[in-house]
């Protein structure tokens, strides 16, 4: 593999997103949402103003879990199929570059853009909050940012994979939305349905582990188990095997969710 080829492709993807202000727009969305949640999250309970970092993160998690997968899928779905449909793929592939380098470059460039937006958007909020919270809370918040980046990268990997499989852009965008529905809305309902249908008996032990099959759930567990307050709040502590509270295991699973779809994409693209 030639790193320079990967870097050339990645650099183009990244600067394209900077130049068309995609990075700026997404960062602004994250900043505004995070600020609103931090300061007005308790408005329904009649309180306005910043409360605790843990409650802020808990609210942010439920926002990010919808938003980041959607943004990542929309960012990556036409990475390959878009070049193919516009007719620029043949010229790219006639260059001294392998298909793996092309996919990896595309992925890394887009991942850099998404990461930059996420870190800039939420980082700005951290600066605003810094005066009101202690170091431990900042570390929590930092953990939330890192897991958000991982979540984005996992869904971006899925997006690049479907952009290799899809026959055209229209189908790719449809598939992207379908994936989002499945992982963000349907998956948990299916698990819950299975649990209820079996009267809470079948699969009670296995069910928590099945959550690892969904990067969005991995993200949720990663953030919620890090915090005592929230764990109690959600009443989840007793249901889950303690092993699932290990951040290193969850991070490993997340990295698997980043690598596996990319691997499949690269295998398919070489066919």
């Amino acid at each position: 593999m030639e790193i320079s080829q990967v870097a050339t492709i990645a650099g183009k993807e990244f600067w394209d997103r900077i130049r068309n202000r995609w990075v700026l727009a997404v960062a602004l969305v994250f900043t505004v949402f995070a600020l609103v949640i931090a300061y007005f999250g308790a408005a329904q309970q009649g309180a306005v103003g910043f409360r605790s970092i843990e409650l802020t993160i808990a609210s942010l998690v439920s926002l990010v879990i919808y938003l980041i997968p959607l943004i990542a899928l929309l960012l990556g779905f036409d990475a390959i199929v878009g070049e193919r449909e516009r007719g620029s793929l043949d010229l790219l592939l006639s260059m001294p570059i392998t298909r793996f380098e092309l996919i990896l470059g595309k992925y890394l460039g887009l991942a850099a853009a998404l990461t930059f937006s996420t870190v800039a958007g939420f980082g700005l909020v951290a600066l605003v909050l810094a005066r009101q919270i202690d170091l431990a809370a900042l570390v929590h918040y930092f953990g939330f940012m890192v897991s958000s980046v991982l979540l984005g990268m996992a869904f971006l990997s899925l997006a690049v994979m479907l952009s290799v499989f899809a026959a055209d852009r229209t189908r790719a965008s449809g598939l992207a939305i379908a994936l989002w529905f499945f992982f963000v809305l349907v998956f948990d309902l299916l698990l819950l349905g299975a649990l209820v249908f079996s009267g809470g008996q079948a699969g009670g032990e296995v069910l928590p582990w099945l959550l690892l099959l969904n990067p969005a759930d991995v993200f949720r567990i990663l953030n919620i188990f890090g915090m005592d307050d929230v764990r109690t709040l959600y009443g989840l502590a007793t249901v889950f095997p303690p092993a699932l509270a290990e951040p290193w295991l969850l991070t490993l699973v997340m990295l698997g969710w980043i690598a596996a779809p990319l691997g499949v994409a690269s295998w398919r693209f070489r066919k």
Binding site: D16, R86, G87, S88, D90, L91, S94, M95, P96
Partner: peptide
């Protein structure tokens, strides 16, 4: 073939370049 590709020039039919 990668080394050969460096010595190949290709102009596709109805070439599509990057608008931006």
């Amino acid at each position: 073939f990668r080394a050969v590709r460096r010595r190949i020039g290709y102009l596709p039919e109805n070439v599509v370049l990057y608008d931006n």
